[in-house]
Amino acid sequence: MRRITSLFPSTPGHGPTRSRAPRLTAAAAAAAVLPLALSACGSDGGTTSSDGTWAPDRPIEITAPAATGGGWDTLARTSARLLESEGLVEQSIQVVNKPGAGGAIGWAYVAGHEADPHKLFVTSPPILLVPMAGDSEYDHDDFTPIARLATDYMVYLVPADSEMETFQDLVDMVGEGGANIGGGSGPGSMDHVALAGAVDAAGGDAAAASYVPFDGGGEAMTALLGGHVDSAVVGVSEAAGMLAAGELRALGVSSPETVEAFPEIPTLLEQDIDFTFDIWRGVMAPAGLEEAQVAYYEDLFADLMETQAWQEESVSLGWTDAYQNSEDFGAFLDEQRTAYTEILTEVGLQ
């Protein structure tokens, strides 16, 4: 296939063979990042000064592995614009859209620029879920995590006049075999995992919940309004308008604590359901970056999130800050992947 032979065949997780099973523990993953950074020999542009710091010497390219206007594009453009307008970078930043195959086209593009520190891309749960479904040649292990930036959560919605009051009511309905629950993405993808995981944690039979995929959260909510499904699971930011208008009501939210915009929606944890689900968003780079290059970008994005402008933008976009540096983000990705695998196994999709 078109896979570019790794320059570092001995690095864990970067060899040509990849196993599908959950394999890396958090500690092992964290350890994996270091030898990767250390073993990188050839530097592809940029200047590493004598004190070991690095700075880009060419325009930085941020790839959104999707068309303009989507969630990834919004993150890429917002970050690029703020990094420039806040004067945090000296080089210009270009946003490139590489849509297709749920992200796989864009990932293949970035993976083809191994060790190039001027090519970043924005990322979120599909970088784990699409490869798990076997639809991408590359998975998160083929890239260098830079930082997790922000997160959004899932809400479990019902029509305003529904008889259901708590998430348990929905689980009971699933148990009776009569619940159709819509989501904004395909089977085995983000919304489905968020639903199945919650039902499972509440003691229900996740495989019995009939998940109905729609093209986007908006369509799922429309179907819910029209009474074509009993419930829908979508991102808080997507549902904000419908919730504020009182057209739909939320049975629960997948966040660890109640979300600022809707303090009246109880979390699943508050309903004694041990489940949280993050729609995290972050930045990654090709494999083979030097430690100093990773450090440069970690600091850059940390600085970005400190700015007033970022704070304002992220509130209006419905994001909660959730910064993690490269090492923590890498470990987090591996944990997430293990959790997703368990849930998908539960519903028989893995």
Binding site: G69, T74, R77, T78, G216, A240, G241, M242, A244, A245
Partner: peptide, 18 residues
């Protein structure tokens, strides 16, 4: 769909409250 994306980028969430 692209227009919707453009609106979201501009900080407008179309919906029943629009």
């Amino acid at each position: 769909a692209i227009l919707l994306g453009a609106l979201l980028v501009l900080g407008v969430q179309p919906g029943p409250l629009m």
